[in-house]
């Protein structure tokens, strides 16, 4: 169909939206995403039965965190669509881009902050982990 949608939407493929973790969404923001959305199957149509419902709850959880830390929960969203809905995908991409454009870039980018971190294991030192 070759429908067009904005180039700023980048896609990460997952086996099921149920594989989306709260951490993945947060990391995207941490890395400077202006907005993140999860596109799962239609409700009741999950290939893996309930993955999309789990994803929905996790998105809601991240929304709450973003609200509390001042990024704004509206930067994350959950959409549902089927494999046949190409136009709907383009529409969602445009809709979300539009919404995020109105919100402006993520505050992380203009702030110049540079919070970093590594994951340590009890047996190793920070230098080793990094």
């Amino acid at each position: 169909m070759r429908l067009s949608y904005p180039t700023n939407v980048k896609i990460v493929k997952l086996p099921c939206s149920g594989r989306v973790d709260v951490v993945h969404l947060l990391k995207a923001f941490e890395d400077g995403a202006d907005g993140v959305y999860v596109a799962g199957c239609l409700e009741g149509d999950c290939h893996y039965q309930v993955g999309n419902l789990r994803a929905k709850k996790r998105v809601a959880y991240v929304k709450d965190i973003l609200d509390k830390i001042g990024i704004g929960g509206e930067r994350v969203a959950m959409y549902n669509l089927s494999a046949g809905q190409g136009p709907r995908f383009a529409e969602i991409a445009r809709e979300m881009s539009e919404k995020i454009k109105q919100l402006g870039p993520t505050p992380l980018r203009k702030s110049g902050g540079s919070a970093k971190g590594v994951k340590l294991t009890p047996g190793t030192t920070k230098e080793e982990a990094a």
């Binding site: 951490v23 947060l26 941490e30 830390i69 001042g70 992380l108 702030s111 902050g113 540079s114 919070a115």
Partner: peptide
């Protein structure tokens, strides 16, 4: 992760 986002946006 949430803390890092917070600190980043706080500059």
């Amino acid at each position: 992760s949430a803390l890092r986002i917070y600190f980043k946006q706080a500059g």
